[in-house]
Design a protein around this nucleic acid. Structure first.
Lengths: 332, 332
DNA sequence: TAACTGCTTTAAAACGTTTTGTCACTATGC
DNA sequence: GCATAGTGACAAAACGTTTTAAAGCAGTTA
């Protein structure tokens, strides 16, 4: 039915091993033989069976990608970076959504190992102990992309979230003393371990008291952001500047302010943290910390290829540079 | 090194076949034997090798997903639908970006067949003849998601783009006679074959002349949309209503109007076509044709599972319902 | 001419499963 | 007590490659 390496070998009067060498670009084949085999391959329409190859070679040229939710802008952008580099190094990716659920993460990880992936890129807001253990026990390399492992024993690619948040906050604190932080999920390590501490430190250094009402946690989407800001405004002690956990939150902030007839940046300033293309698709366009999502994905995948090939890697924990893109939601 | 089915068989004093039956839930195993085997599996930490299984059974429980660009909102949402249903039916997905490039599409398709996927979901703005032929020659089922095959010989899931566009346009034509259509790429079959003809028909039925300047083709992003609208306004014969090819274009339209001090919907009305979450993340929120992206992906994957299992399928070309969500960018 | 060298090529084992044909055993019916 | 089903389990082949050890071969060298 389907054409196998055996058929090619027979037609070309060579052994399977020789066909295998030709297919895999091994140099130990006489040019004349190579030509003959190539012709037969073309004539018969032979397509190597990657599954059989995987079984024999113990390599699948496939890596697993576990992601909270591909329909989120952020993770989609990260994934694009991963996939591009994967393609460059001739890997395919098996993609699966975890919905940030530990059980699913563990189960997906196991499934992927069962499928004999050569490595895994993992994105997770929180690397739980069970997940940590599973990764440590993995027979293939694992790299975290845009995710924090607090033990720092697992390879990962991130930016310095603390410094980035601190800079953004300092920017606002130059002109404001009522600065709110509308944050994403509290169990997201980047929030609990870096952004919120950065907020606290930035205020403390200005000898300002921390008003807990100005730290709104667990805002997960646009609507919740709009609502949170409305509540802040109606509280009678409205902030004059906002630091947004991400662009979607920032959009909610800007629109809630607009709905309350507050001008940005004249009346209120806003800085976001992400800089997806959304940041430029609002009026006013958002000043934002640039989270290089594509690069994080790409570097993570590149790192994974090195680990797979057992190449020397200088540092397992890579920190990419960040910067603040000044646009129209701040006074500059 | 790694635990194989053979190790389990030896430890449990049964044959490999029996272990295989237990693992695969085959009923022809005595409960006592099953229990014994299960215990050994647990004790040894046996994890079946899906690659070996794939070779022996000729099934990989993996499907290929070829997508123009995962970092696009639209395709990410479609993919989420695909992946959810894939998971439900115990499939994994191999995801790859084609960048809408025919060569890449063909090559990815070939790679996936080489990896012995059980089926493929394909998204492509244009099913070229070469791609069509490759699909027809495929040894495994292929389903198009949100993509048009003009020969209608390939399984596909879509909405009635013509009717949807026609309805949106009719809506605008009730109050306007200067209606522009800011369209996406012309080589996207949905545009060239359905939306533009719908525009023409809607105008003709009102006995209105078609002003070619009001059909702006090949607008691929927010910035181009902003620019196109600015040019239209500066032309001295500005439209009073816009039909946007998608939400990103619509955002560009709204912001360009805003920049030109035109009020939406008071001065100008806008209808979008897509209704991603972006549509609600603008002021004013967008009236939009609802493109059920998640559902298209989900239904496409469900259809694929049926085809893989050789179940009877009533209709290869499925058309999902659409509707218009009225929000604030039109007068209703 | 015989031994040696270095390059090609081969035959066969290995990879870890599923699946098929067969056999052994138990319970049933007469 | 004997043939008859029906279960449950086994042995071995098959899946389509890669890889390893060994052999073949042509050209050198002494």
């Amino acid at each position: 039915m389907t054409v196998t390496i055996y058929d090619v070998a027979r037609e070309a009067n060579v052994s399977m091993a020789t066909v295998s060498r030709v297919v895999n670009g091994n140099q130990n084949v006489k040019p004349a033989t190579r030509k003959k085999v190539l012709e037969v391959i073309k004539r018969l329409g032979y397509r190597p069976n990657a599954v059989a190859r995987g079984l024999a070679s113990k390599k699948t040229t496939t890596v697993g990608v576990i992601i909270p939710d591909i329909s989120s802008n952020v993770y989609a952008e990260l994934t694009r970076g991963i996939e591009d580099i994967a393609t460059m190094y001739n890997y395919n990716i098996i993609l699966a959504n975890s919905d940030q659920n530990e059980d699913k993460e563990l189960q997906l990880f196991d499934t992927m190992l069962g499928k004999q992936v050569d490595g895994v890129v993992l994105m997770s807001d929180e690397v739980t102990p069970a997940l940590h253990d599973a990764i440590e026990a993995s027979p293939v390399p694992v790299v975290l992309a845009g995710s924090i492992d607090e033990s720092h024993t697992i390879a990962s690619v991130n930016i310095d979230y603390f410094a980035a948040a601190y800079e953004a906050l300092s920017h606002l604190l130059k002109r404001h003393n009522k600065v709110a932080f509308i944050s994403g999920p509290e169990n997201y390590t980047v929030n609990s371990g870096y952004k919120i501490p950065a907020y606290q430190k930035a205020l403390q250094e200005k000898n300002m008291e921390i008003n807990e009402h100005y730290i709104i946690k667990n805002i997960v989407n646009y609507d919740e952001s709009v609502q949170a800001v409305n509540e802040l405004i109606n509280s009678g002690n409205a902030p004059t500047a906002y630091f947004a956990g991400n662009d979607e939150i920032a959009l909610g902030i800007v629109h809630a302010l607009y709905d309350n007839n507050l001008q940005v940046p004249t009346d209120v300033e806003v800085i976001s943290f992400e800089d997806t293309k959304l940041a430029r698709m609002v009026r006013p366009q958002l000043t934002s910390v640039v989270l290089p999502l594509y690069d994080i994905g790409a570097v993570a995948m590149r790192l994974l290829t090195k680990l797979i090939n057992k190449e020397d890697v200088e540092e397992l924990t890579v920190v990419l540079p960040h910067r603040i893109e000044e646009r129209d939601s701040t006074k500059g």
